[in-house]
Design a protein around this nucleic acid. Structure first.
Lengths: 351, 351
DNA sequence: ATGAAAGCGCTAACAG
DNA sequence: CTGTTAGCGCTTTCAT
């Protein structure tokens, strides 16, 4: 007989102490009806006395479900991803799941297979893929039918796959329409890396809205950043060189917009008199930039919890039906416009 | 006989397919010596053919360890905590642990008992308490001997408990000594909430260093913020009212420092000519504030992975010795000073 | 070098 | 309403 070093209390100890079978203890612990109040009380007392805590691992084994979801995230030291993660955690909590977190340090080319294997070995009930679609980093999706449900965030909608997205084209539309309404006509754009699906969407929104407003759309009005503040600074210089008549710029995240604000100050261009700036994300600091930044706000907590909601539906569906119909769904959330000084608040439109 | 809906491959299937016992499969999977190369190969082929993935849950049950550590964090939508979490994840990965993440939404008064129970029910091998010590939110520590090792981050050192800290007093010392060296003499401070242990440490460092430099230390030189940009803005106004001769201010995080920069611009005080500013954290944007912010940098990734390293030592120690000697340890990491424009870079010291 | 038996802590299925 | 039996998938122990 092996000697257990840790002297943990099990369901058997409780059963013996309360003078019932382990089955009855199990019923009490899981609040299953059909136990006499007296018995229930006796068992509960034993549980309290012994400090019994059910072993979720053992339960998982019999039920072949772990009450855990795997989350793959990246870039959580940035505002957007971390905020999304908070939403996921909150949603998971409410739905009774615990979170198993894995981070991708190079989301564009990490080998995801070991990570997926790890999740499956740990018997997660489902997976949330909360990392950006960059280049071909979703290629593994082509593989055979996946053993657990997966919900993807911010990825191109695909057949047979469930996705939750924030509508980036719509966000860009809000930004450009706002600038147009205020009388700006020469509108440039600083995009994120074009390898990112979401960056392409935002750019596409700019294109469409510009065209719809009968404004010119030329390559010299576009430059590509890498989301960093310094790339925004460089981006502005590039744009002004090729597109000197520019009077407004849509910058695809707030960090780059900060670089734009600082560089335009250096160059002596007043914001918003000489140059209007609209960012994207509404990071908390955006309201304290100088001038305060007009930007596009996404409800990221909601984004994360929506993903969990969808995932738990999918998990439930798979449990109920033996033949899982792999219903794929794409949910689109809408961002909103936040108007501040950098696009002319407090200044007359320069018509 | 129950019908399993999910048709997962188990060790038995592999055993049968390879014509060996489950023992032998187990030995192959876990790289245990004492299997003939031929047998090993045959088993490996079966594993590959069937796509077998060991069930970590079942393994956990027999070994009574889960290869998982629980992490309690809060405020991960801020730079410091999220960066620390990245470090923890990386360290855990390297040490072969997976991460079970729980977030505290109100770190100062959430009831942590259900959270701890959840971790213990899930049989985590250890816990990292990566949330700030605020008020009495560590009161639960007084309870009886804890069943798994715990490492605390950023908390007051205690007997019988293991802690990893970044030395905030030393950080403040760097900041103040720098200002003194540049000739500033009337140095105010905007602290974080005094209920936070780490905020008090930073304030204490300011006090000590001021005293050591024979500079006055009065209450009117001190004001308390809540880490937010707006509280920094208000803090500066308060300080200037009570301490009008102030020529430099040490702000205990970069977000508040941003509020200070913006307000001082509004008030027509030039930075650093009229007012030097030093922040704390070195968030990525700090280099792009105007003027760029002098600040205190902490290596937070290292902070997180150090915590994991300590924890896995503690876990190993408990497994080896039946009588765990509860050796507590406190590790101090040192921050560094990053000099930029807000404290007079490029300007002569105003002696 | 390999296998048989027992059991980790719990719950599903059936009796009674 | 309550108990008995038989596993979940794996590893440990002890034979052979």
């Amino acid at each position: 007989m092996r000697i257990r070093s840790t002297n943990r209390v099990t369901i058997k100890h409780v059963a013996k102490s309360a003078g019932v079978s382990t089955q009855t203890v199990s019923r009490v612990v899981n609040n299953i009806p059909g136990v006499l109040p007296g018995t229930r009380q006796r068992v509960q007392d034993a549980i309290d006395k012994l400090g019994y805590r059910p072993n979720v691992i053992a339960r998982s084994l019999t039920q072949s479900r772990s009450y855990t979801i795997g989350v793959v995230a990246s870039g959580i030291d940035y505002y957007g991803p971390s905020r999304t993660l908070v939403g996921i955690e909150q949603g998971a909590n409410e739905a009774g799941y615990s979170l198993n977190l894995s981070l991708l340090h190079q989301p564009e080319n990490d080998d995801v297979q070991p990570l997926l294997d790890g999740f499956l070995s740990r018997q997660v009930d489902g997976i949330i893929w909360a990392t950006q679609e960059i280049g071909g980093n979703l290629g593994w999706l082509e593989q055979e039918h996946f053993p657990v449900p997966v919900v993807f965030l911010e990825t191109r909608p695909r057949r047979e796959v469930s996705v939750v997205n924030v509508d980036g084209r719509y966000g860009s539309q809000l930004a450009v329409q706002h600038l147009v309404a205020r009388g700006y006509k020469h509108i440039g754009v600083i995009t994120g890396p074009k390898t990112w699906w979401s960056a392409r969407e935002r750019l596409q929104g700019w294109r469409e809205t510009m065209a719809a407003a009968d404004l010119p759309v030329e390559d010299r009005q576009i430059t590509e950043g890498n989301w960093s503040t310094s790339s925004g600074a460089i981006g502005l210089e590039t744009l002004l060189e090729h597109f000197p008549e520019m009077d407004a710029v849509f910058v695809c995240n707030d960090q780059m917009a900060l670089g734009v604000l600082q560089t335009s100050r250096k160059l002596g261009r007043r914001v918003p008199e000489d140059l209007a700036v609209v960012g994207y994300d509404d990071i908390p600091e955006a309201a304290y930039f100088w001038p305060p930044l007009t930007t596009i706000r996404q409800n990221l907590m909601n984004f994360g919890s929506t993903a969990v909601g969808l995932l738990s539906q999918l998990i439930a569906a798979r449990r109920e039906e033996n033949d899982p119909p792999v219903k794929s769904e794409t949910i689109w959330l809408r961002p909103e416009l936040v108007i501040r000084g950098s696009s002319g608040e407090g200044h007359p439109p320069n018509l």
